[in-house]
Write a protein that binds this DNA or RNA. Sequence first.
DNA 1: TCGCAGGCGGAAAGCGCTTTCCACCCCCGC
DNA 2: GCGGGGGTGGAAAGCGCTTTCCGCCTGCGA
Lengths: 341, 341
Amino acid sequence: MPRTSSTRAPGGAVTLQQVATAAGVSLATASRVLHGSGGRRVAEALAERVTTAAAELRYVAHAPAQSLARSRSTVVGVLVHDIADPYFAAIAAGAMDVAREHDLMVLVANTFRDPGLERDYLARLRAQRARAVLLAGSAFVGEPFAEEVAAFTESGGRVAAIGAHGAGIDTVEPDQYGGGRLVAEHLVGLGHREIGVVTGPAGLATVAQRLAGFTSVVTGPALVHADFTREGGRAATHELLRDHPGLTAIFALNDLMAAGALAALRELGRPVPEQISVAGFDDLPVATDLTPALTTVRLELADIGARAMRLLLDDEPGGRLVPAPAELVVRDSTGRASTLH
Amino acid sequence: MPRTSSTRAPGGAVTLQQVATAAGVSLATASRVLHGSGGRRVAEALAERVTTAAAELRYVAHAPAQSLARSRSTVVGVLVHDIADPYFAAIAAGAMDVAREHDLMVLVANTFRDPGLERDYLARLRAQRARAVLLAGSAFVGEPFAEEVAAFTESGGRVAAIGAHGAGIDTVEPDQYGGGRLVAEHLVGLGHREIGVVTGPAGLATVAQRLAGFTSVVTGPALVHADFTREGGRAATHELLRDHPGLTAIFALNDLMAAGALAALRELGRPVPEQISVAGFDDLPVATDLTPALTTVRLELADIGARAMRLLLDDEPGGRLVPAPAELVVRDSTGRASTLH
DNA sequence: TCGCAGGCGGAAAGCGCTTTCCACCCCCGC
DNA sequence: GCGGGGGTGGAAAGCGCTTTCCGCCTGCGA
């Protein structure tokens, strides 16, 4: 018979009371020793008896009970559109790193850009009394969602966002506009005049900003919508070239779609960059492995995630706006506009 | 002044008691209406008053309090080595999908293969009284970790793993061995005899199994260790070819390293597959976008994650082993062994 | 008309922890 | 030698919810 059977509660977990009893002290003393916030000290000898007993019993505090008693939990939420998208995975990783430094656990919610799910998850994060929530995407819009956010902050939680600036919400704002502009200037500098843009889901602030930056330089580019996925980018590129065969460059609003664009151009037998140039956005790891290596805009995604999490966890007043730079990374997928068209 | 200021508790959140009062019923009745497990019914009229009041006050139950009272929580944990690695991201996404169907929230812990962190996170998941935890990687080994797992199950949580079969633990076992074997047979069938293998971190069961499958066909291949990253694969490939210039094929034990291998070969001016073939493992989305498109072994990662989560959440006795198939996907990076060496 | 059963609302006892407040002990100073 | 004060342990009151048990009320049968 395992030694633990006499010390473990039948239901399973060890309670503080058991530790206290084993150490021969009161519940209060045990609590002070193990979780005391320094306000009150316990004599050396007793403290050691308690810690020893706790270790022997493999005691870990019941976090929900602690949350209840302290009325503050140790979890934070991260809302992402899709954790399998490397863009969000990188942001989440950065955020989780910082959370760990603060001894917090991270609840990740995959919303698939479904507004209903977004609200639902936010409500459930509120139910968990999550200390804070990071909105790692900019599709979170609309009145009902804003109400949910308000309810969250009103019940004492902090909210920060990446890329979408709401009133009173801390925001890390990647320079989407500037990135789009950099691409435009780069392409124009190479002599391109007929440029098509593969945009993302309508309504995404990210899309609007990247596009706005681009059109601040190149007016009236050919546009086609896709869904921020590789396949979407591929299909959109076919469509784009069918309708506008004279294009000499394509700007895909993210790297996933740029990969699709390159695939489509390969299928069409259009050499890149000799006949047509392609640029992306995000500088995902895949960008270097594409052929030709992708010219794109670098966002320090992990860093962005980390900074957003820091905004959530310090105790400064909210409403701050932290800019994150976008940097053009020129690789082999862009070249001088071909003169023969 | 916002209308809510009179109804909201100053501290923030709305409590059930407030809802009950607003509806003019007792706490018990409100609880039965809103969270009743069907065991007991409340008259229609009262129920409606309660739900209305709850909606108006934007009430959401205090999850920690609920966990405490019911002594079961609504969170599950997923332990991954690195969520930014597409392999784990895909598994996590599949798992999270199933969790959502069960109305559970997912706590994701990034361990970076640090044994200390793995144990620590597992203890904290136990502290949260997570209903279950999915070990989405096979590096979780060693006595201390096994003890932590035991403590977790003893305190009433379920544990499932991907790829590492432990006693009493539900496991989804991707056919790593078979996949390695498929690659070997494929390469041998193409006439390759001098094959190098870029392996992963020592001690990973995944690595051992893929390699074992491979060496069951090809004995004594040249080996070099890397760390499952693209850069590691690149460096390892350089090393491999320095020491074994006559290799006609390279098997990288995952796609990330295969991407690095292709980069290295490009740097060396060795055409793939004309002069040397390359195969990977996992069939990450990037595989199709590499040049040449990568021959690899497909694992249905999202499905694997989903199945593992289902194992965790049904109430069957543990210790099951669910195999997941591995399938060879032949693309352009492998070809007949060059006769000139 | 009275009795009883069935149905349904409410009081209250926890769930495991924190934290306030009280009581005790010891030591010091006068 | 006695009173008081500082320090430290313990009792107990919650935190917000679930759930058992109790008791009331209604309606039906005799």
